[in-house]
Design a protein around this nucleic acid. Structure first.
Lengths: 212, 212
DNA sequence: TGAAAAGTTGACTATATAGACAACTATTGA
DNA sequence: TCAATAGTTGTCTATATAGTCAACTTTTCA
């Protein structure tokens, strides 16, 4: 006797590759929370509400999925930070940059955490991507800072450390949210809280670098 | 015919629980790199150069081992930061605190990363530990800052954000080392590099808060 | 309209992993 | 001295996981 296989309902009509996005979103959350090795395809599938086999229809394997998520995240990163225009005055440029980074932490905490996990793990999958463009971007910004210092527009502080402080301080509100919530005894970080944090960081960085 | 089991050499004479420390160290590195779920007992065993079964002799299970590593790390944390004495002058107190945190990042990067991974994952195993003492410590420090502000010894910046900036900036040099190495195009962070970073952070934080 | 392509699905397989276990060796201490 | 205890080790088992597969349904387009 041949047993007819009983299946769940076939879900049609998702416009082309909508499933792909569902999977990418679920994967982003799962990888951000548990890292590459800690994440499981099963949990990603459940979270995306698709069968696990469906993931393998869209992505070659776990590493391929992870790569796609990382690429997605880096693109997001770029589009946000390319909007920063090169004003001449350090006060304006840094104010805008800090606001933009802080806004990114608020609106894309999972992307920030994914990036952080990858870095803490030694950036095994990311280092290839970053080698080229990243250093160039960094060197250019360093140059701008140095010209500001030469023009007496800011104190003689190593620009690298200034940039690291900005990155560290702004990403902290996304990556270490639990620590902040515990310390401040609150349930979640409001948009208001982010704005206040942004103001404090701007005050300290700008004044601390002697920029006015 | 009974086959005699061939075994590797029995390694005797390790003074009591020396193996335990070997395992704890290996586990710290593995958990710091891959997180709780991404770490495997097999890799920890290989890294510690003991058979996997030996781990289960000292620790009940994977979660027990993780808990022991976390507890170890937290104790380390405490002993380092309890050395900070309560000077009256904010300049001295914050200078010493930043130096101490920075030194911790340099000498215990794995502990810092383990802590970071746990936080980014939502602190599932840690939140219970932190609830009690942590908030108290934080509130006390906040109070000190507020008295400084009232005495006109520093600008009126929300103390919470100042503390977060210090934590973020100092931990960054341990947690995001790969990013720093890529950006600055260097092989590793020397003690000299840490000292320079510490000086930059102190300059910006102290001046930025109007402390002199 | 109908065959081919695109997309979905449950079941399956091979492997990796956490943990249990029994057999062993060294150490202790009465 | 010798039995009890502490510590070490290879093997085994149950389960979890990544990835495969063939059967299915819908969509596309000539």
């Amino acid at each position: 006797m041949s047993t007819n296989i009983v299946r769940g309902p076939y879900k049609p009509g998702r416009i082309r590759a909508q499933s792909r996005d569902l999977i990418l979103q679920a994967a982003e959350a799962e990888f951000a929370c548990h890292g590459f090795r800690g994440a499981t395809m099963q949990r990603i599938a459940e979270s995306a509400k698709v069968p696990k086999a469906n993931i393998h229809y869209y992505f070659s394997n776990k590493l391929g999925l992870y790569g796609a998520v990382l690429e997605n995240t880096l693109n997001l990163w770029d589009t946000v930070f390319n909007e920063i225009s090169d004003h001449d005055e350090p006060f304006d440029v840094l104010s805008r940059y800090i606001d933009a980074k802080m806004d990114f932490s608020r609106t894309h905490p999972k992307a920030s955490r994914l990036f952080a996990k990858e870095m803490i793990s030694g950036a095994p999958h990311l280092s290839a991507y970053l080698q080229q463009d990243y250093r160039l971007w960094f060197k250019q910004r360093m140059g701008i800072f140095e010209s500001w210092i030469a023009q007496g527009k800011m104190d003689n502080v190593d620009p690298a450390h200034v940039i690291f402080m900005i990155w560290a301080s702004t990403q902290y509100y996304a990556d270490f949210e639990p620590q902040i919530l515990i310390a401040t005894d609150t349930k979640n970080l409001s948009e208001q809280a982010f704005l206040e944090a942004s103001d404090s960081i701007k005050h300290i960085i700008l004044k601390g670098c002697g920029i006015r």
